[in-house]
Design a protein around this nucleic acid. Sequence first.
DNA 1: ACTGGTGTATATCTGTAGTGATACAGTAGT
DNA 2: ACTACTGTATCACTACAGATATACACCAGT
Lengths: 131, 131
Amino acid sequence: MLILLDSHSGKPVFRQILEQVRFQVAGGILKPGDELPSTRQLAADLDLNPMTVSKAYAQLEQEGVVERRPGLSLVVRAPRGDELDARRREELARVLGPAASAARQLGLDVDVALEVFRQALARRGGDDGKQ
Amino acid sequence: MLILLDSHSGKPVFRQILEQVRFQVAGGILKPGDELPSTRQLAADLDLNPMTVSKAYAQLEQEGVVERRPGLSLVVRAPRGDELDARRREELARVLGPAASAARQLGLDVDVALEVFRQALARRGGDDGKQ
DNA sequence: ACTGGTGTATATCTGTAGTGATACAGTAGT
DNA sequence: ACTACTGTATCACTACAGATATACACCAGT
């Protein structure tokens, strides 16, 4: 599993892990049944304290993205059917929420906002979603 | 001018002021030419330190929502035609860029993405983008 | 010049989110 | 039982954002 930490992104590390795993699962990069590295393993790789990883993992489990097997490491949970698509929407909505409230505060019309988003979707660019 | 502070909303006070003024201007409750109360005045009303208000006002001025007259208090700025609207779109596009690439990476259809955004716009709530 | 307004630069205090060190508990394999 | 893993509860540390206290500079009216 590949996790890239951007140390000067301002985002807390555990959240970066959280989001990247969530995103990779939603996007199909991590498939149901795939194992996640142990907390200590990932912590060592990223040069972090295991607790930091543990907190991210704990929340992932709580969200149902990942499942705990008895004595073993975490595995990506198999979503049933439409659940995967729902999760993708959810993931997108998460990123879109701030934009929506920004649009409201700017007093922009719904149609205008949608049009701006349509253009953004059409525009192909290297921005990978991390501010 | 009416500002309501929600002390247990978790949002910092200066941001609440900022957003409410921005919103009232965008929504036409505050019209171009309207005066804002002085920093000390508003601070007294809300039982705050003037500096807190000052910081909100400073950012409002920087955003061009409000204008400083020589020796007097702040007044709501008259938007110059489409220039302001263009700036708003630009601002929104900036926030929307990452979301667009996220949608692409998640493999979501353009129509689905737009629908998700429409829902986000409809959903009323104080999410201001700080997770 | 004096008084009562205005705004804010600077430095300081404080609450808290994020991180880490430590120690404890469980499981698998030998 | 022992070893080598696993995860995490608890507490302590740190850094930073937000709020404040203080002090200064400006302007208008008398």
